[in-house]
Design a binder for these strands. Structure first.
Lengths: 204, 204
DNA sequence: GGACTGACAGGTTTCAATATCTGTCAGTCC
DNA sequence: GGACTGACAGATATTGAAACCTGTCAGTCC
């Protein structure tokens, strides 16, 4: 009995693909390594040759999945709009992607949420990548004078934190509320005001 | 067999007290109406004379519990500090209370969190009460010229949303992170800048 | 007569026995 | 000889029967 998937060689990539499909179908609580192996026509022992544990496999799947969020955002980061506008576009796109995934891939989204409790590393790396993107936009704005910020990195993290309700999966349940867009407008108005204010220390 | 608690009359208030104690001890998943009745030395049927359902009882307990959060904050709302300072104090106090409760009353806190999924009414009322407090502070600041905002209510809701990470129970797990205070400082700096900026439309 | 009881139906939770899963490794097979 | 298998121990999940809970109501008891 030897029929490693379609054409014979078991690669890390093939396992990841099958594992993602299994996770998508069964969800984080029901997906097993045995299922993944079965999908590949392989014994589960073989999977352990490529990944040290189920957790490592799951993390790798999610890393890939999260990378597919950050990657398209790069295009916006490198855009030519004025930085404040670009930051807003970036936030909108981020929110849109998260909401789309919460709707269309609920099982993987649930896996992502449950991950926050377990291995925080992958999640943290994802957040860091996003904040890095925001930092680049803001630094760009500072350089061209469209944004005021002492430290682009701190400002980016603060913008990310302040908009948590709109992109953090912990709030996914609230995204159905139609008032959410209005709420974002309110927060964005404050952030924009803060970032584009004519600066200088407060004067009483 | 007739020994209604200590001194004979079963009141709504006594039931609430006992129910809170039971919830505190057993948590939201294990507390039962029978437990509450047992604690009062009463049959569970009697409890249903005062509350139409277990959910209604649980909601009433939480309403009381949440009221004990908003009430002490009133003192700050009515304080004499300049509005921006008062808003900051109010936020700090709010965060402190939430964190203290998450630590000291984990079972009731868990009940509160689980409530977000079920009956949203009580939670919503609590949020509305908090936003009303923030609105009063901001309106006060607008009146005395220390805060710039077109609509105090909108600004208050936005401040509340932007600081969700620091007081929303969905983020309770992150409150242990020592970087959380620094993160709050960053967000507060933006909010303060936005609310105290010398206003006027952006001029390029 | 009105607050309280206790037995009840239908639904949910618990518990322990059974099945499945994870991670390992000696052995098979090209 | 290196990728893969399959049997294994210990841990985790599933299952079905029994126990328990919710919500109701006719009836008891001051």
């Amino acid at each position: 009995m030897n029929d490693v998937a379609s054409d014979g060689i078991l690669t890390r990539e093939k396992i990841l693909e099958a594992a993602e499909e299994v996770l998508r179908r069964f969800g984080p609580s029901k997906a097993t390594v045995v299922d993944v192996a079965r999908a590949l026509g392989v014994s589960h022992g073989s999977v352990y040759r490529h990944f040290p544990s189920k957790a490592a496999l799951r993390d790798a799947v999610l890393e890939r999945w999260l990378h597919r969020i950050t990657e398209p955002l790069e295009e916006i980061v490198r855009g030519r709009q004025p930085a404040p506008e670009r930051l807003r576009l970036w936030l909108e796109q981020l929110m849109a992607v998260k909401r789309r995934r919460a709707l269309n891939e609920p099982e993987l989204f649930a896996t992502y949420i449950s991950l926050a409790g377990d291995a925080r590393e992958v999640t943290k790396a994802h957040v860091d990548a996003l904040i890095d993107q925001a930092t680049r936009i803001i630094a760009d704005g500072v350089k061209s004078g469209t944004i005021m910020a002492k430290d682009a990195g701190v400002a980016a993290r603060s913008v990310f934190d302040a908009t948590a309700r709109f992109h953090n999966p912990a709030h996914a349940g609230e995204w159905a509320d139609p008032a959410i867009d209005q709420a974002f407008e309110g927060v964005w108005a404050l952030l924009k005001a803060a970032l584009t204010a004519r600066s200088g220390p407060k004067r009483r």
